[in-house]
Design a protein around this nucleic acid. Structure first.
Lengths: 245, 245
DNA sequence: CGGTGGATTGAAACCAGTCAATGGGTGTGG
DNA sequence: CCACACCCATTGACTGGTTTCAATCCACCG
């Protein structure tokens, strides 16, 4: 079982030590894999809710549209993420999944969760914690959308991206690859592409960031952390209450 | 065991049939109870994360502040809700809990979840589903905040409140009690109290709602559902994949 | 009866949106 | 290999929804 190459195991092991049995359970989730080109819609909101996906590589995002076309991107997915988890609670998908670039996904059926819940209390606790932690992150995004200016929102997004990428990539520096277009960033932050453009330019002038192609360097991370009152929700979780199995 | 009087059991039974053992497990969560006056802060963001709470009666809300005082209310709590669930994943509370009016809460320790995860896969699945459903709801709120006008946001909030209250109160009509101030509503919707006032007046003039004291009547629910593309996330959940115990 | 918190009202300021034109890079097909 | 199309980022002028600030009104309460 090549669990070494599993982003999911890597990501989850960051929080808690897993038994061999649990590692195997997770590895089976990544048995199948499918590749998609850039800008491909894997499933659509309203579709019957069949599979979950583990991201093996590439970026994707989930979004919803209003009837008149306004779009809100609600989550950006990176390697190791589980896609579609929130929809498990419902019968139909609530969001549409779209790839940003070339992506490899591992689909697995909802019913795999059944197995985990029955056999591994410890893994169940971890999955529950991930779901709850994601709620906290959504709440942070909500705060950004409700009460922050454009520059603060962009700063928040960049800090959040870096924090997430650092989990699986410990030697991440202050430079990230940002394959999303400014329109997509706008749809994520509740702004317009025009205003994103102006905000990036302003932030570059002010020395917060430096851009080069689709790579972006954070120059004043501390200032941005203070500006947005940023808290890293990914580095630590409270696993002290977990069942020992 | 007076599980008949338990809002939590009522709320959860709405989704799935529970064994007596499971009902008892839930009932023990409501053993203790504490009363609080209006406008009381039960715990604060940053506090060590000790207890969860089940709401027995009264409204409360969770919020976060930015350093400069901007406030975002992230969740409004009603009877039967579990408060502080998202924070289980972390060591410290991320939000402050404040009562809207006189409230009765039942505190229980995080470790009670341990027991549930080890003993009842079915109840574990339900708790996980609740957490995931709440994520979907947060995503809906996010969409409202990111892409909707003031009137649309207010409409969305009212529809959401009604949908939630209808779960435990099946004979709810089109009239709800709204004990929150306009400043609190503004902090929930990412607007200002002034604009909330103007928006309510406008909506009343346009025949969407009627206000009387702190009671509010929805006159054109269908129009508001269409305006906001509203989906009820509370009525149905997909419990088909749950372990049978 | 004064004090207080909440709701309302109006004027002015501002952040972000809209619209439209321009430029740059990339890939494709002739 | 060049011409063209297309997508994306940029730019500027104008618009507009929401905020800000401040004053007033109102109900409730001690």
């Amino acid at each position: 079982m090549s669990s070494k190459s599993s982003c999911l195991v890597t990501k989850l092991s960051h929080y808690v030590s897993l038994s061999d049995a649990d590692r195997d359970r997770l590895a089976t989730l990544e048995k199948a894999e499918r590749n998609f080109g850039a800008g491909y819609e894997v499933y659509q909101g309203g579709d019957e809710n069949k599979d979950l996906y583990v991201v093996k590589h590439g970026w994707a995002f989930s979004y919803t549209d209003l009837p008149d076309g306004r779009r809100q991107i609600v989550k950006i997915h990176h390697p190791g993420d589980i896609i579609g988890f929130p929809d498990v609670a419902l019968k139909h998908a609530t969001t549409t999944l779209r790839t940003v670039e070339e992506v490899c996904l591992c689909p697995f059926p909802k019913s795999s969760l059944d197995e985990i819940l029955r056999r591994s209390p410890r893994l169940s606790a971890l999955l529950l914690s991930i779901a709850l932690r994601d709620q906290v992150v959504l709440i942070d995004v909500l705060r950004a959308m409700g009460r922050m200016s454009a520059q603060e929102r962009v700063s928040y997004m960049l800090l959040d991206l870096i924090a997430r990428l650092r989990i699986t990539n410990r030697d991440m520096t202050d430079t990230i690859r940002l394959p999303m277009t400014q329109s997509q960033i706008a749809d994520y932050l509740g702004l317009t592409n025009v205003h994103i453009s102006k905000t990036f330019i302003r932030m570059e002038e002010d020395g917060y960031i430096h851009r080069d192609q689709n790579r972006l360097r954070i120059l004043r991370e501390d200032a941005m952390i203070e500006l947005t009152d940023f808290h890293d929700r990914y580095a630590d979780m409270d696993t002290s209450w977990f069942p020992q199995d």
